[in-house]
Simulated assay, not measured.
Amino acid sequence: MLHSFSIPRDLAAISPLSQSVTALMVPAFDQDARDAVDLALVEALSNAVQHGTKDSAKSIGLEVVLTETEITLDIIDSTPPMPLFLLEDLDPDALEVDPDDLENLPETGRGLALIVMMMDEVAFHHIDDQTRLRLTRRR
């Protein structure tokens, strides 16, 4: 079943949308899968807001296709595409943390690695004036 959403370019709009998507997953997905999708979705939407166009009139779309076996999230934006190497060249150590040096923990740079780790498939497409980040998670 297809569900379509649209949010303004505002970080405050992400949490309510993510909660709506998580609620859709309740009958078919366990808590671990819901948490993984929530984390990936929040990170992807945050990236779209923070790194996308500065034109606040352009909203961010989300298409959710939910089946008994998987959920697919298409984040649709009208900003220029990100370089594909960002997905291809993810540093496997991007999520490593030195527990003895938490004061110098970087605040950015781990979002895409988290998204890829939480989802079964991550694909990026740019068609005409739309950029789509497709996230898929299977049960």
Rank of each mutant, 00 (worst) to 15 (best):
M1F: 07
L2N: 13
L2Q: 14
S4N: 13
S4V: 08
F5W: 08
F5P: 00
F5S: 02
S6T: 10
P8F: 08
R9F: 05
I14Y: 01
S15H: 15
S15P: 07
P16G: 01
P16E: 04
L17Q: 06
S18M: 01
S18F: 00
S18Q: 02
Q19F: 14
S20N: 13
T22P: 06
A23Q: 12
L24D: 02
V26F: 12
P27V: 03
F29G: 00
D30C: 08
Q31L: 15
D32G: 06
R34P: 05
R34Q: 15
R34H: 06
A36Y: 02
D38M: 09
L39S: 10
L41F: 04
E43M: 04
A44M: 08
L45K: 01
S46K: 10
N47I: 04
A48W: 02
A48Q: 05
V49D: 02
Q50L: 15
Q50C: 15
Q50D: 13
Q50S: 14
H51V: 05
T53Q: 04
K54E: 14
D55V: 07
D55H: 07
S56T: 13
K58S: 11
K58A: 10
S59A: 15
I60M: 05
G61M: 05
G61E: 03
E63A: 09
E63Q: 14
V64K: 00
V64R: 00
V65M: 14
V65S: 13
V65K: 14
L66Q: 04
L66Y: 03
E70M: 15
E70F: 13
E70T: 07
I71G: 02
T72N: 11
L73E: 00
D74T: 08
D77M: 02
S78Y: 14
T79S: 15
T79A: 14
T79D: 13
P81D: 02
P83D: 12
L84Y: 11
L87F: 10
E88H: 11
D89A: 15
D89N: 12
L90M: 12
L90Q: 10
D91R: 09
D91E: 03
P92H: 09
D93T: 09
A94D: 06
A94Q: 01
L95N: 01
V97S: 07
D98T: 02
D98M: 06
P99H: 11
D100Q: 12
D100I: 06
D100H: 12
D101G: 03
L102D: 03
L102E: 09
N104K: 03
L105V: 07
E107C: 09
E107A: 14
G109W: 03
L112W: 00
L112I: 02
A113I: 01
L114P: 05
M117Y: 09
D120Q: 05
H125R: 11
H126S: 12
I127D: 11
I127P: 07
D128Y: 10
D128S: 11
D128G: 09
D129Q: 11
D129K: 09
D129P: 04
D129C: 06
Q130V: 09
T131R: 10
L133K: 01
L133S: 02
R134W: 07
R134L: 08
L135Q: 03
T136M: 11
T136I: 12
R137K: 13
R137M: 03
R138H: 14
R138S: 12
R138L: 11
